[in-house]
Simulated scan of single mutants.
Amino acid sequence: MKQSIVSQKKTTKKTILVTGAGGYVGSILVPMLLKKNFKVIAVDKFFFGKTLPEHRDLRLLKKDTRNISAKYFINVYAVIDLVALSNDPSGNNFPELTWQINYQSRLRTAKISKEMGVKKYILPSTCSVYGNQKKIVTENSKTKPLSIYAKSNLNAEKDIIKLKSKNFVIIVLRQATLFGYSPRMRFDLAVNGMTEGVYKNNILPIMRNGLQYRPLCHVKDTSRLMAKLINQNLKKYNGQIFNVGSKFCTEKIIDIAKIVLKNVNNRAELKWYGNPDNRSYKVSFKKLKKLGFKPRYSINYGVKEMVEYFKNNKIKKNLKTITIEWYKYLDTKKKFLEI
């Protein structure tokens, strides 16, 4: 009897290059990608310290995306271009830098990706491009960006989509306002800041006038979506935009505050701050279903999750958790603007 020989093909792990990998989303996304058996090149200047776990399939690349070399894109299957100076205060304080990183550097990264044979490019953008809208907005609605942060993201969307080809698939994800725990914690996000204020000080900070609508999305949900898209056939959606969030996480600011109070401390004092925020919009997330994706995590879940981390002393508010304050500090040390 002849001995049968079974030959097995070696499976080559796909390599994913993630910019801004040490940030709020990247610190959740990168471990997800590693668990899904991808190799990851994590590109970041790591302003906020090391938040990523050591792993045999993880390469940390301390580089600025404004001048990253094309050599790092060799044999990369997909790029997730998270890098950005995030939120309006950062954009207002550092408008030139916001334009360079959120728009110019991401357009440059997309061009390099295409030239080097990358198959997929995912651009995480923002629902802030909708500005102030009275009607429920879809991906086809007119955009009304009100800040340099929103305008830089919108310009990146428009110019990067033009690069699509049959061999270079581009997907744009307009993310709702994010919330929830991350190893690179942020307390300058609405739900997170409210939860910290109530838990630590019995004071709930709330932005005037409180009647603005905000679509929200847990950081784990947007990360789950990006990880899912890597192995998905996206050719029929090439160059398309998807709103990322859920109807069950769309609330007025004042109603978000009530959810936080209910889950943490109903007796906390409301502390109003700032000028009335003109951004208010309801977003349709119907198109997201075409990708076979459903968000899982509610505002209630996110608040309870953070409370548990507080109870176990695993998160605390400091300068690094307020993005604009940390940027200002780095700027005084001349470590921020340099490439």
Rank of each mutant, 00 (worst) to 15 (best):
S147C: 14
Y130P: 05
Q133S: 11
L146M: 14
T126F: 09
K144Q: 09
S152E: 06
G131F: 04
P145C: 00
E157K: 00
L154D: 04
G131S: 10
S152M: 06
Y121I: 04
K142Q: 12
C127G: 07
L123N: 09
S147T: 15
I148W: 01
K134L: 06
K142R: 12
Y130M: 04
N155L: 14
C127F: 08
S125D: 12
Q133A: 08
Y121F: 15
L123F: 15
K144D: 01
A156S: 13
V137I: 10
A156Y: 03
Y149P: 15
K135P: 08
S152Y: 03
V129Q: 05
N153H: 15
K135G: 03
I136W: 08
T138S: 08
G131T: 05
E157R: 02
I148Y: 01
Y121V: 04
I122Y: 13
Y121Q: 10
I136S: 06
S147L: 15
E157C: 03
K144H: 08
S125K: 08
G131A: 07
K144S: 07
C127I: 14
G131I: 07
T143H: 01
P124Y: 11
Y149C: 10
N140F: 12
S141E: 12
K144P: 03
P124V: 13
K142E: 13
Y130K: 13
E157H: 05
L123G: 03
E157W: 01
N132F: 11
T126V: 06
A156M: 11
K134R: 12
S147W: 13
S128F: 06
G131Y: 02
K142G: 00
P145G: 00
N132Y: 09
Q133F: 02
N132L: 13
K135Q: 14
I122T: 06
P145V: 07
K135C: 01
K135T: 11
I148R: 00
N132S: 10
K135M: 11
T138W: 04
Y149E: 13
A156G: 07
N155F: 13
V129K: 00
E157S: 01
S147N: 12
N140A: 00
I122S: 04
A156D: 09
I136V: 15
S152Q: 00
K151A: 06
K144F: 03
Y130V: 07
K135Y: 12
E139W: 11
Y130W: 09
